[in-house]
Structures are given as structure tokens and as C-alpha cells.
């Protein structure tokens, strides 16, 4: 049966971006305030789930044309790469580096290699969660 979901679909388009922006915010806030890659990733997942709820798999796939398995792999590589960078300097694995910079617009910010690691976490969480949801949803 074809259903009329105009209300939901319209709001979703707006709400999706709110959630997504919020997730990005939480992701970057992670190092200093609650948040981080996990929550960020899961929130993004939530946003995509909302899209899936309001629309359908095919539409969402068209809108977000990623291969989520590959995204997972990239995330893992990113995380591993950050950690393994230490090998080239012959310091223990996972030795992070950070420094404080004064950037225009942001004021004093710290640039931390951990953020790359966290980005890996983010990607993996999104990738695998969506892989799972897509597979189950796509199963007949």
C-alpha cells in the first residue's frame, strides 16, 4: 500500500541536517567536552536511519552513494595509520602528537593527531552500523 508520508519526509529533510550538524559538533567537541567519535558516528547513523525510515533504501542509496563496507575499511585504516605512524619515529605505538595553534576565527586551538584517530572511529561506526541496518533492511 502506498502511504502518504509527506509530513514526515519534509521534516526529515530538515531534521537530518540538524542531527548531522549536531553529530559533527559532538565529534569535534569530544576532546574537551563530552562527545567524540563514537557518539558522533552513532548520531550520524541515527540521522541516516531517520532518512531510511522516512524514505526507503533505494532512495537513500541514491542520495548517499557510499559503499559502507569500504567506509568501514577506510576508517580502520585511518585509525590504524594514526596509531602506526609512531612506528616510523621508533616511539611506542600510539604516541600521539599535539600542539597549540592560534588560528584565525577559532582562536587558540589544539591540533591533535588523536582527532584523526577519532575520525577513523567515526567512519567505522557509521560504516558498520549502516552496513548492518542496510543488510537487514534489504533482506526479504
Amino acid at each position: 500500500m502506498k502511504t502518504n508520508d509527506v509530513i514526515l519526509q519534509t521534516t526529515t529533510k530538515v531534521v537530518f541536517f540538524i542531527i548531522f550538524l549536531f553529530s559533527i559538533h559532538i565529534f569535534f567537541a569530544g576532546h574537551y567536552t563530552p562527545g567524540g567519535g563514537f557518539v558522533g558516528g552513532l548520531l550520524t547513523t541515527g540521522a541516516i536511519v531517520l532518512l531510511l525510515l522516512a524514505f526507503d533504501l533505494k532512495t537513500v542509496q541514491k542520495a548517499l552513494p557510499f559503499n559502507f563496507t569500504i567506509m568501514t575499511a577506510i576508517g580502520l585504516l585511518l585509525a590504524l595509520g594514526t596509531a602506526a605512524g609512531a612506528i616510523f619515529f621508533n616511539v611506542p605505538f600510539f604516541t600521539h602528537a599535539f600542539d597549540y595553534f592560534t588560528l584565525p576565527l577559532f582562536g587558540e586551538t589544539s591540533l591533535h593527531t588523536a582527532i584523526i584517530f577519532d575520525a577513523g572511529v567515526f567512519l567505522v561506526v557509521v560504516g558498520s552500523a549502516i552496513t548492518i541496518i542496510q543488510s537487514i533492511g534489504g533482506d526479504s
Binding site: 567536552t33 562527545g35 567519535g37 576508517g75 585509525a79 590504524l80 596509531a83 572511529v121 552500523a129
Partner: peptide, 30 residues
């Protein structure tokens, strides 16, 4: 160089845990 201790533990002090915990998630996905 962080403020949120839990998050810093996760990505730095005990980042190794996190690296493999996302591996678990990835394996679950595939």
C-alpha cells in the same frame, strides 16, 4: 592535551582498546 578525560583515555591513554573495539564493530558489520 585534552579536557574530557574519558575521551582522552579512549583515544590516547587506552587508544589501543578503542582501535580494536572499532575492529569488533567492523567485523560485526561485515
Amino acid at each position: 592535551g585534552g579536557g574530557n578525560i574519558v575521551n582522552v583515555i579512549l583515544v590516547d591513554y587506552r587508544g589501543f582498546d578503542t582501535l580494536f573495539e572499532i575492529a569488533v564493530l567492523a567485523i560485526a558489520g561485515i
